[in-house]
Amino acid sequence: MDTEAQHTERDRTSGPDEGAAQERSRSARFSRLVRRGGGRSPGGTAWQRIGSRVSLRTAALTGAVCTVVVLLFSHFVVQPFQIPSSSMEPTLQVGDRILVNKLAYGTDSRPARGDIVVFDGRGSFVQAELTENPVSSVVREGLAALGLAEPADTDFVKRVVGTGGDRVVCCDDEGRIEVNGAPVDEEYLHPGDAPSEVAFDIVVPAERLWVMGDHRSNSRDSRDHLGDPGGGMVPVDRVIGRADWIGWPAGRWTSLEPTGAFRHVPPPSGVVGGHG
């Protein structure tokens, strides 16, 4: 008690400048402790909890908004598409993520010979009534839209070989496919593959496509559905978009340039202008 009394007495006799200096020194030490975490202002813990909750809500809201933006962009503009098989090798390899341009075709632009397209094969490559569990379908579509899952069993990627009105024949004396009487040198084919081991002679109906894989010996395409309803032809309105880029893996980043294989193909009989 004596010590406290003496301390009180000394405070009373201190000059006003000395007291103010002591007060500033104490405030400075307190501020440094608070900044270092060694001190805690009244109610500091509660404010920290509130700030943490606000930060979590902000992060969750930001993540949700970003996800919605990505899904909308994927649905309407460019969609990642994971390659599940080797049917398009060597152009596309298993595990590639291609970016499908959904704005490539419209009223003034149609799929052209040589284009690599992704399409819904229901009614041409698979049964139209093929269904999937609604819950798993939503989850899969969401992951597929982000390029994190394989596409639906009803989605396919192939190369357009014939468009509406074209006569596509296999094969000429040199084993090449002919389109409207012109042989096509398909430089994109898998090494060692013949253009086709199956003979065919078809005329593509209007608003339909004849499509084939680049790995002809390992591709189920229009040739395999000649006897099915629709004759293996894909309706143009079932085309999801054109594959324009390989986006993943990083070592395969590239744009998918148009092929010149069909540049010498004439338009089909009775049609003015070409298809590609």
Rank of each mutant, 00 (worst) to 15 (best):
F73P: 12
S74Q: 13
H75F: 15
H75G: 14
H75W: 15
H75K: 15
H75T: 13
F76A: 10
F76V: 09
V77M: 11
V77L: 14
V78K: 13
Q79D: 11
Q79H: 14
I83C: 11
I83Q: 12
P84F: 10
P84I: 00
P84K: 06
P84M: 03
S85I: 01
S85Q: 10
S85L: 04
S85Y: 09
S86P: 15
S86Q: 13
S87M: 03
S87K: 10
M88D: 08
E89R: 09
E89D: 15
P90E: 06
P90I: 00
T91E: 08
T91W: 09
L92R: 13
L92C: 09
V94M: 12
V94A: 09
V94W: 09
D96Q: 08
D96I: 02
D96L: 04
I98M: 06
L99E: 10
L99D: 09
L99F: 15
V100A: 08
V100E: 10
N101I: 02
N101C: 05
N101W: 11
K102L: 07
K102A: 08
A104C: 07
A104K: 11
Y105I: 01
G106Y: 09
T107V: 11
T107G: 13
D108P: 05
D108T: 10
S109E: 14
S109H: 15
R110S: 12
R110G: 03
R110A: 08
R110F: 08
P111R: 02
P111D: 01
A112N: 06
A112K: 14
A112D: 05
R113H: 10
D115L: 01
D115P: 03
D115C: 03
D115S: 04
I116E: 01
V117S: 02
V117M: 03
V117P: 07
V117L: 06
F119Q: 00
F119W: 03
G121K: 06
R122N: 01
R122H: 05
G123K: 03
G123A: 02
S124I: 00
E132L: 01
P134S: 00
P134Y: 01
S136H: 05
V138M: 12
R140H: 11
G142D: 07
G142L: 09
L143G: 06
L143N: 07
A144T: 08
A144V: 03
A145P: 10
A145V: 02
L146K: 12
L146H: 15
